[in-house]
Structure formats: structure tokens, C-alpha cells
Simulated assay, not measured.
Amino acid sequence: MFESIVVAVDGSDAATRGVEAACKLSEAFGGEVHLIHALENKAVVKSDQAKRATGGNGLTSDVMDAAVKQVRSAGITPSSATVAEGDAFDEIMMIVGLYAADLVITGRRGLGTLSGMFAGSTSQQIAKHASCAFLSIK
């Protein structure tokens, strides 16, 4: 039923519960777990800036490290763990398409910006536009 599960992580409690739900669904249905963390615009952490300044091109994320550790502690190896720089909705939907996800999981009110409350949260955008099942965790 759920062969490809994409989980958006942002360090919030709701996202952590989303990872837990993804692990349980993966166990139940044998699905792959794909993690995505979007560093929105100016939210690139200092370690990433330092890495680029010294010639590196990858992004790092304590949020992603914690999510990968959480998945592994459930006895599952994440199929992918992507840290992207850009709009959260766009980055999540790119991963959903890339891995032909049949389920995307997000926290309902994560660590989005105040403007997100007025323009619509990432979860609301995904619920409206996703072509697969969507689970929002509170």
C-alpha cells in the first residue's frame, strides 16, 4: 500500500512524531522511508556556510542527523536523506515526485514562519496539491 514514504522533518515535535509514524507504516507495508529537510532561504546554518567557504558543496543539518538516527533506532535504514535549500513546499514536492511517493508525512504546525500562518502552511499546500496520500501529524 505504502511503498514509498516521504517524511518532511524540521526539528519540531510534530515532525518527530511524523518520523515515528513513517517507521511504523514502513514496517507494516515494507515501504521505503525518504527524509527531506528544507533549509528555507536564509535559514542555512553556519556550518553549511563554512563548508561552502572551504570548497564543500553539501549541506549538513542537525535536524536531518536526528531524523536519520530516529529511523535507524527503529531498525529501518532510510532510503534517502535530503537536506535542501529553498522553499519547503517546492523541495518536499520535488522529493515526492523523484521517489514516486504514495504517502507524504509532515507535522501540522512545525517551525514555519509567521508569514506561513497568513500565506498558508507547508502542510496546507501539500494537502491541496499532492497527488498522493498525505498525513499531517499534530
Rank of each mutant, 00 (worst) to 15 (best):
T77P: 11
T60D: 15
M93P: 00
C132E: 15
S47R: 12
K128W: 07
E32C: 13
C132N: 11
V104P: 03
M94I: 03
F134P: 03
E20K: 09
S121F: 12
S115H: 14
H37D: 00
M1Y: 15
G86T: 04
A14W: 00
D90R: 05
G18L: 04
G75E: 13
S131H: 12
L135E: 04
G116Y: 10
H34E: 05
A100D: 15
A50K: 04
L111P: 02
A22I: 08
K24D: 14
C23K: 06
C23W: 10
K138P: 00
S47W: 15
K128I: 09
M64F: 06
M93R: 00
A15R: 01
I76S: 11
C132L: 15
E40V: 04
L35T: 00
A101R: 05
A130L: 05
I126M: 02
S26Y: 13
R72H: 05
F29L: 05
T106H: 01
S12D: 03
K42A: 10
L103R: 05
M93H: 01
V6W: 01
V68T: 03
I95Q: 06
G55H: 10
A14L: 02
A38Q: 00
H129F: 14
G86Q: 02
A81W: 10
E32I: 12
T16I: 07
A21W: 07
G56R: 10
I105A: 03
T82A: 07
F134Q: 00
A50C: 08
I105N: 01
I137A: 02
G11I: 00
S12N: 01
S73E: 14
F89Q: 08
M93A: 02
A119H: 09
G58Y: 09
D102P: 07
D87R: 10
K69Y: 03
A28Y: 12
M117A: 07
D10P: 04
A15Q: 03
D102L: 13
S12I: 00
G11F: 01
C23N: 11
T113Y: 14
C23Q: 13
S80Y: 06
F2T: 07
A50M: 12
S121E: 14
K24M: 15
R109W: 07
D65Y: 11
Q70N: 05
L39V: 03
F29I: 09
C23A: 15
G30F: 14
G55P: 06
D48Q: 15
M117F: 06
H37G: 00
R108T: 02
H129P: 05
V6P: 02
A101M: 15
M93N: 04
A8N: 01
T60I: 12
E27T: 14
T122H: 06
V19P: 04
A15L: 01
L114W: 13
V96S: 01
A81V: 07
R108P: 01
G31M: 13
S4R: 14
A101Q: 10
G86V: 03
A53R: 05
V9H: 02
V45H: 11
G31A: 15
A88F: 11
R17D: 02
S131I: 08
